[in-house]
Amino acid sequence: MGRTYKRVLLKLSGEALMGSLPYGIDPAVVQSFAAEIADVVAKDIQVAIVVGGGNIFRGVKGAAGGMDRATADYIGMIATIMNAMTLQDALEQIEVPTRVQTAISMQEIAEPYIRRRAMRHLERGRVVIFGGGSGNPFFTTDTTAALRAAEIDAEIIFKGTKVDGVYDSDPNTNPNARRFKSLTYSHALTHDIGVMDSTAIALCKDNDIPISVFALSVSGNIRRALMGETIGTFVGGSCDIS
């Protein structure tokens, strides 16, 4: 068992909400994520979440198809709000008080992002889900996660992915790929290792916010990670390959 945290930020990709579906949202997956988050909140750990929108629309792909990049990114931001509302509903179905805050004003369905209000919600035991990315095109939800973590004084970012950590090459194509147990920010930036995008890593480095990368595909891993169990790859300390 590793360190116990008081306030954490969980980064969930939109793709994680698809489960085995080709696109969209798998309700069973969302419900399982919500149940694990509920267990963490019950341990008095404050949880903020940034969710992506790639299961519905990805700005980069839209731009590659000929769409204006800024317009495509805005559509992607709206997709993240759809995911945030879906996750909120799953959490509230199991009586976990949850607030969605958006960087794009949608006052009929969610609160605007206000840092002090978000922190107050967390102090009162509510899960806060940040939708709408950073509100700016050309920035990823990874960068949003780093930004929001710094703003709310989160102790760590937990990033759930398709693989069980960070590797020195793609484990899906290279059977000899080696997994890092831990990794420095500088190593990740210098060697362009796919932890998060470079802007997000630089923000974490500047604000001394560690990143823990773990596999979402393993049942119970959200609970294990957020409760401090050492799994996946830790970014921020010394560099170690398993």
Rank of each mutant, 00 (worst) to 15 (best):
I152V: 15
A154G: 09
E155Q: 15
I156N: 07
I156P: 04
I156V: 15
I157S: 08
G160L: 11
G160P: 06
V163S: 10
D164T: 04
G165Q: 07
Y167I: 09
D168H: 14
D168I: 14
S169A: 13
S169T: 13
S169F: 10
T173S: 14
T173C: 01
T173M: 05
T173A: 09
N174K: 02
N176F: 06
A177R: 03
A177G: 05
R178E: 14
K181S: 15
S182K: 09
L183R: 08
T184F: 06
T184H: 05
Y185V: 02
Y185T: 02
Y185Q: 02
S186P: 00
H187R: 11
H187F: 07
H187L: 07
L189V: 03
L189C: 01
L189R: 00
T190R: 10
T190V: 07
H191E: 13
H191N: 14
D192I: 01
D192V: 03
G194L: 08
V195I: 09
M196L: 15
D197Q: 01
D197S: 04
S198Y: 01
S198D: 02
A200K: 00
A200L: 01
D206R: 13
D206H: 08
N207L: 07
N207C: 00
D208Q: 11
D208M: 06
D208H: 15
P210N: 10
I211C: 04
V213N: 07
V213W: 12
F214E: 08
A215N: 15
A215E: 14
